[in-house]
Every structure is written in C-alpha cells, then in structure tokens.
Amino acid sequence: MRFSIFGRFIVEGDSMAPAFLKGERLVISFLPYFFGGPKIGDVVVLRHPQQKNLLLLKRINDIKDNKYTVIGDNLNGTDSRTFGLIDRKNIVGKFVAKY
C-alpha cells in the first residue's frame, strides 16, 4: 500500500492513547494531501522506514526540509526517536474519522 485514497484501519496498541485506543476503527485518506502537505499535529498512518509492511499510527511533531518527525502521543512507543525522520513517501494517509 503506497498511498491510501480511502482506507479502513483498526488500531493495535496504546502509544496514541487516549486519543486513539486499541480496537478503534479509523478512516485514513491521502486525499487531504493532494491539496497541501502534511502539517504538524496531523495524525497519520505511515510505513515503518525499515519494515515496509509495518504500518504505524503517529502524530507529526515537526517538519524540516520535507522530512517528518513522527511521535506517539505516549512517549513510550517506537517513533522518530527510534527510527529517525521519515520521508513523505512513507506517509500512507491522514486520519480523517473514526467509525
């Protein structure tokens, strides 16, 4: 999955609690980024830079030179502190809604 125009995801894990809890169902879309790039504060689904099949849910914490720092709301997860900055191509889509 390179980009998701409209994807359904289910949350596994607690690093984004309490905003996103385990088992919650999310709609993710790349459409918002056709009209402007990801912004600080956006919650995104991204591909782990070293494990392409692993999809993570994180919040964009900083953007510099088209590189994104993504951090879990709970700072005990695996995020940019572990795997470094990510490229835009790693971002699958933006959180749009829960259902």
């Binding site: 289910i10 894990g13 607690d14 070293q50 999809l55 997860g77």
Partner: peptide, 17 residues
C-alpha cells in the same frame, strides 16, 4: 469490515524494530 476486515495499524508501545 465484516466482509473485508480493516488493516491493522500499530500505535504500539514496543514494536520490535
């Protein structure tokens, strides 16, 4: 979702890298 389950997305505390 019942027909085609959603993908898992990990907001995990200890994803082994």
């Amino acid at each position: 979702d019942k027909i085609n389950p959603p993908s898992k997305v990990y907001a995990h505390c200890d994803v082994p890298c």
